[in-house]
Design a protein around this nucleic acid. Structure first.
Lengths: 221, 221
DNA sequence: GATACCAACTTGGTATCCCAAAATGGTATC
DNA sequence: GATACCATTTTGGGATACCAAGTTGGTATC
């Protein structure tokens, strides 16, 4: 694996894992020494992460992108459009047996599953569901949206009941897809996404002081 | 303007203007000497253009992305989803007077307008229309889709009647938006996009031998 | 004439060096 | 004590040198 991929992967994990907080300044030299690579691959990695929205320019320098509530709301609208389009395509397929693979992902989480895993599977559900459509651009759009939402979703305060509800919604969506009921699937998916958005924005809004106290930059809507 | 932006801009224009043909190999050293910049900004520019889908990796090297008919079909589905979502948002706005600005773009083209201008305005119409939604991600998605379609649309064989029909469809879409009729606007926009896709794919499919003879790589659907 | 093999060149990946601009910190002045 | 100013350091942008891997072209052998 090239140095550029190496730096990009590790830096991405540190940012998504909140090891580097939203709003923190980054210097190319710090990354260079941190990962033992020279500035050329570091700069390439930063350019990649910039297009993913994980880092952004701050004047001349680099900053880990802050949590932006307005952006989160807009992304929800965006992903609703593309996920609904994707699920309609999937419902129109003759062979929809691939939903079983997605259902198995949901099954892999139970009471003993660590929170990180619930978080990861909760995003991969949407990503893999979009992949089933066979449309590369809808798939990429969902993956990109989930990446941008990842940190915010991790910071969301969710009790077990909320997780259970989300999983039930996921299963209902899959059931509709399996039945080939595009309208039902689209409606449930749409409601799920908008509901998730509202809970997410509300949670972050209520917690914004605590988040800022932890050093996380949170931009209001 | 930085060297990186300079190289990116010029290289983008050369690719979109088909001065460098789809499928052509690129070397960092050629770009370096062509634009008088060193490899550092050249590499940064290539990474940018790669995320825009204008260049792609070919093993170890770089290639101007070929025209890909399957990709064009998928992008049409993608842009239909996002453009329809955007126009519905716009129709729901109280103040939709900004459509006048978009309408003025259409008015700027007449019989004496060069073909490049029709081409540019034909894309900007969709981009600016999406911008009116106020959703940054829907807007970016449309802009990105149009960038990826730009070369194919330029190669499309379109007579004056077809252009006139497209403009009429554009105006009908704007009229529906101005009236706040979301369903009508969405329906007309959707039909316009799918119709455009069909004509585009058909045209390129029929012309693929001629295009290949001009040295343009065309990947079949 | 076909093919196996080797040297020279090309090319992307990386490290490193230089530079200008911006940030920083200390000092002198009021 | 506050502030204006200047020297120093830091930082990103760019240029260049080096390397390894891959390609190419030619040659010698069969």
């Amino acid at each position: 694996m090239s140095q550029m991929q190496n730096v990009e992967k590790q830096l991405r994990e540190m940012i998504l894992g909140l090891e580097i907080g939203p709003g923190e300044r980054l210097t190319e030299r710090w990354i260079e020494s941190r990962f033992g690579a020279s500035r050329t691959p570091v700069r390439a990695a930063l350019l990649r992460l910039e297009t993913d929205g994980l880092v952004c320019r701050d004047g001349r320098g680099w900053t880990v992108s802050p949590i932006n509530l307005a952006e989160i709301e807009q992304i929800a609208v965006y992903r609703e459009a593309v996920e609904v389009a994707a699920i309609k395509l999937t419902c129109a397929l003759e062979d929809r047996s691939a939903v079983d693979v997605v259902e198995a992902m949901l099954d892999s989480c139970d009471a003993g599953t660590p929170r990180e895993e619930w978080h990861r599977v909760g995003m991969d559900f949407h990503i893999e569901l979009a992949r089933l459509s066979g449309n590369e651009f809808l798939f990429r759009a969902v993956r990109d949206a989930m990446t941008r939402l990842s940190r915010a979703r991790w910071l969301e305060v969710r009790d077990e009941a909320a997780l259970g509800r989300a999983w039930a919604e996921h299963r209902a969506i899959l059931a509709a897809v399996r039945a080939g009921d595009a309208d039902e699937a689209a409606h449930r998916l749409s409601a799920h996404i908008i509901g998730s958005r509202d809970r997410l924005v509300t949670s972050l809004h209520n917690d914004r002081r605590g988040l800022r106290a932890r050093g996380f930059a949170v931009v209001a809507a």
